[in-house]
Amino acid sequence: TTVKVNGTKYKFDTPEEAQKFAKKAADKYNLKVVVDGDDLRVE
């Protein structure tokens, strides 16, 4: 599972880890998590 934040992709072994990271990033930058198929985007 990958998470894309500000054009940078981060790869995670499990969707749970990816979800946690995406949520933290979204909170930090005051953005929202967008599900894109198997991957997540923070925008």
Rank of each mutant, 00 (worst) to 15 (best):
T1I: 12
A18D: 01
L40A: 03
K28E: 10
V5F: 14
Y10L: 05
A26C: 09
G7R: 06
K24S: 13
D38G: 11
K24H: 13
Y29A: 08
T2A: 06
V33N: 00
G37Y: 03
K28G: 06
F12H: 01
A25Q: 15
T2P: 00
Y10P: 01
F21E: 03
Y29K: 05
G7L: 06
A22M: 03
A18E: 01
L31I: 06
T8A: 12
Y29I: 05
A22W: 02
D13L: 09
T2R: 05
D38S: 11
V34L: 07
T8E: 08
L31P: 04
V33A: 02
A25L: 15
L31T: 13
A22Q: 01
T1M: 10
V34K: 06
T14C: 03
D27Y: 09
N6S: 05
V5M: 12
F12A: 00
K20R: 13
V3R: 00
T1V: 13
V33H: 00
Y10H: 06
A26W: 03
E17I: 04
D36Q: 06
N6G: 12
F21A: 06
T8H: 14
A26E: 04
F12W: 01
E16V: 06
D36H: 06
A22H: 00
A26Q: 04
Q19D: 06
Y29S: 06
E43D: 09
K11R: 12
V42C: 05
N30I: 03
V3Y: 00
D38A: 12
F12K: 00
V34H: 06
K23N: 09
A22G: 01
A18P: 00
D27P: 03
D36I: 07
K28A: 09
F12E: 01
R41D: 03
T1G: 04
K32H: 11
K9Y: 13
N30Y: 08
D38R: 12
V3D: 00
D36C: 10
G37L: 04
K4E: 13
V33D: 02
D13G: 10
T14E: 03
Y29D: 06
Y10C: 09
Q19E: 10
K9M: 14
Q19M: 15
A18L: 01
A26N: 02
Y10Q: 01
R41W: 07
Y10N: 01
G7W: 04
V35I: 13
G7D: 06
D13R: 12
K11Y: 15
V35A: 10
A25V: 15
N6Q: 06
K28P: 03
A26Y: 03
T1Q: 07
A22P: 01
D39P: 02
